[in-house]
């Protein structure tokens, strides 16, 4: 029990420090109050925005900007990752290309994409796709290449065809890395989303809200938006990904 309490205390300690610094800055007025609103004000704004539904609406809008594209990227990263992982010619073709793109931040593509698609949701979708795909593909390739060779021998011994081997042995065998890839990919997509929404404001969402609040000097709203972004990230981590891991890897004794 005591280690558990210690973990909680240590885990919250830095949040507390930030809060204390924030209060201090506010009370001493080192930063003018019209610039930095107090923690209390910010909390009130946050709760108000939740209550009147505007934060939820923004969130739903952001979900619409991220999820269709994220799911598509999971699908393609899985397919391409498996092929590149099992076939050396695919590796020779794709790896140099992928490692070149990998070094470019996904937001760097934005001007180019806007040129073709304008300030639309499609533009954001494409950025999200690049962002999450590039993170996931390496995990999938690594996972597929790391699959126990003897599992593949068993599959060959039992005369499974290529497709059966991929579906029944390679993908489940690589699942630990695939899941961690999806997790990292989602984090990456979520971060890119906010950036993209700040630039493509016509598509709405949390990023736009933060950006526009800045122009109105509403830093209570900016911080409310940031808190929302962090909360949603944590929620996904804890509810979705943790649950998926428990239903698979944990049950199978792989972690």
């Amino acid at each position: 029990m005591v280690p558990k309490i210690k973990e909680i205390v240590l885990g919250w300690s830095l949040f507390l420090v930030v809060l204390i610094v924030w209060y201090t800055l506010n009370i001493t007025q080192i930063v003018p109050t019209w610039l930095l609103s107090s923690p209390n004000e910010t909390l009130n704004t946050f709760l108000k925005l939740i209550k009147n539904g505007s934060l939820i609406k923004l969130l739903l809008n952001s979900f619409l900007n991220i999820f269709p594209s994220f799911f598509v990227s999971v699908f393609f990263a899985l397919i391409l990752g498996v092929f590149v992982g099992i076939n050396s010619n695919f590796r020779k073709i794709f790896l140099p290309f992928l490692s070149a793109i990998n070094l470019v931040p996904s937001l760097a593509w934005l001007p180019l994409i806007i040129l073709f698609f304008g300030f639309t949701r499609q533009t954001i979708w494409i950025v999200i796709f690049i962002s999450s795909f590039m993170r996931m593909i390496y995990s999938v390739i690594g996972g597929v290449q790391g699959v126990n060779r003897n599992w593949l021998l068993v599959a060959r011994n039992l005369e499974l065809n290529k497709f059966q081997t991929i579906m029944k042995v390679i993908i489940p065998g690589a699942l630990p890395q695939i899941l961690s890839g999806i997790r990292v990919g989602f984090g990456s997509a979520w971060r890119s989303l906010i950036g993209a929404e700040m630039l493509v404001v016509t598509a709405g969402g949390l990023g736009k809200y933060i950006w526009m609040s800045q122009w109105a000097f509403r830093f209570d709203q900016v911080i409310s938006g940031i808190i929302m972004i962090a909360l949603v990230g944590i929620l996904f981590e804890q509810l979705v990904f943790r649950k998926i891991e428990q239903a698979t890897l944990f049950k199978w004794g792989l972690i």
Binding site: N148, N150, W151, L153, V154, R156, N157, L158, E159, V169, P172, G173, L175, T248, W252, G253, L254
Partner: peptide, 18 residues
């Protein structure tokens, strides 16, 4: 080529944990 008429059994079992 490999086939189901000759099945290999490994020292470390090689079962599928999933």
């Amino acid at each position: 080529k490999p086939g189901t008429d000759r099945i290999l059994i490994f020292q470390d079992y090689i079962l599928f944990p999933w």
